[in-house]
């Protein structure tokens, strides 16, 4: 029995093989390829979904009020802090709510943009911060 032959590492420079072309996503977008379109529409769709979400929240609560007061007239008589409930809601409470909605939207919209930048131009600007809470 002879000792097994020494292992020889077989390598090939593969000089004749075609190099995999690495195309940056930004140039996919610039040359309007299908892939580039997918990148852009992913951003557009994310922002639209966010916008519709905020609108549903605002419209749901704000436009739900007339309906609620119309369906349940007793609500109009409820007194809060010495004021009728419709007054408390429409004259005062609605404004902080709208400002909060706007502030939350800006945080999420900027986050969506950072994710997009990190995806199409990795290394240039890492997404800072955590994903904001809904």
């Amino acid at each position: 029995m002879t000792a097994p032959p020494r292992r020889v590492r077989v390598t090939s420079p593969r000089t004749s093989a075609a190099r995999t072309r690495r195309v940056a996503p930004t140039s996919e977008i610039d040359s309007r390829t299908r892939l580039g379109e997918v990148y852009v529409s992913s951003l557009v769709r994310a922002q639209l979904r966010l916008a519709v979400g905020v609108l549903v929240l605002v419209a749901g609560l704000v436009t739900g009020l007339p309906l609620a007061f119309w369906l349940f007239p007793a609500l109009r008589e409820v007194m809060v802090l010495g004021m009728p409930l419709p007054w408390v809601l429409l004259a005062f409470a609605v404004y902080p709510f709208l400002i909060l909605c706007g502030w939350g939207y800006v945080r999420r919209a900027e986050y969506n943009e950072r994710v997009f930048v990190a995806m199409v131009a990795p290394g240039t600007a890492p997404p800072e911060g955590e994903e904001p809470d809904r």
Binding site: L55, V62, L98
Partner: peptide, 20 residues
């Protein structure tokens, strides 16, 4: 109070403007 919708709408218009 039904006229309270004017100032509310004038403000909420900016929420719509902001998100869209």
């Amino acid at each position: 109070a039904d006229m309270l919708w004017y100032p509310v709408g004038w403000t909420a218009g900016y929420v719509v403007l902001l998100v869209l």
